[in-house]
């Protein structure tokens, strides 16, 4: 069983790296969906605490949202808003990829300094969930487009979810689900906003949103 958990966790990590190096938004959405699904499977493999939400329900719910609903919403936004396909990172892909490795090393270092309540947790869980969390933050910072920022939020949430699933044995899954609903609302709102920004301005480059500032002050 632990071997499977290990492989899922390593796969999550590799998906982070793939995310950082992929140049197409379409690919990014797919990667986020696959990662969400893999992370959603985790409650099934980790021993759950008594009194926690049933792992099957939790797993089903998060896989349904992250693997099906979000990608569908994002693809819709992509289609409707006629977004160009490239990701446009700041600093280029090789740098992003190396930053991914650095973030993993950082996560590893952080996880070495944590005190674990339970000695039997998978050793890779903490570093990878930190790395996933950092990757999400990094994506939000380094990518130009609004839609890639939404994807960044999804990755960030995957990191939190993985941490909860591995360490708290489903105890916190209720909290997780609440966060998930927040994200759901956020993605939904962002989808609509992206659509509207696009209609008004013909692009969704967040850097150009700063032009709005002038319009407001001049009025």
């Amino acid at each position: 069983m632990t071997m499977w958990v290990d492989f899922i966790i390593v796969a999550v990590l590799l998906l982070d790296l793939m995310m950082l190096s992929s140049s197409r938004i379409r690919n990014c959405i797919q990667i986020a969906a696959v990662q969400g699904t893999l992370v959603g499977l985790m409650p099934l493999f980790v021993e759950s605490h008594p009194g926690a939400l049933s792992p099957v329900v939790a797993s089903f719910f998060s896989i349904f949202l992250k693997g099906v609903v979000f990608p569908w919403l994002l693809f819709r936004a992509l289609r409707e808003a006629n977004i160009r396909k490239e990701v446009e990172p700041i600093g280029g892909y090789p740098l992003s990829l190396l930053m991914g490795v650095v973030m993993f090393a950082m996560g590893f270092w952080l996880s070495k300094r944590l005190l674990y309540p339970d000695p039997f947790v998978p050793a890779l869980g903490a570093p990878v969930s930190f790395a996933t969390f950092f990757t999400g933050v990094f994506l939000i910072i380094s990518r130009m487009k609004a839609i890639t920022q939404v994807i960044g939020y999804l990755i960030l949430e995957n990191g939190i979810y993985l941490f909860g699933a591995v360490f708290l044995g489903g105890q916190s899954l209720l909290v997780e689900l609440a966060i998930l609903l927040d994200i759901f609302a956020a993605v939904f709102v962002m989808g609509i906003t992206i659509f509207h920004i696009n209609r008004e301005f013909d692009h969704i480059d967040t850097q150009k949103l700063s032009e709005l500032k002038d319009i407001i002050t001049s009025k």
């Binding site: 790296l17 190096s21 892909y93 991914g100 090393a105 590893f108």
Partner: peptide, 16 residues
């Protein structure tokens, strides 16, 4: 660079 990243990640994994 992907190869470099993979090998670096592999090395960090050996340290768990």
């Amino acid at each position: 660079i992907i190869a470099l990243a993979l090998s670096a990640v592999a090395f960090i994994l050996t340290m768990r």
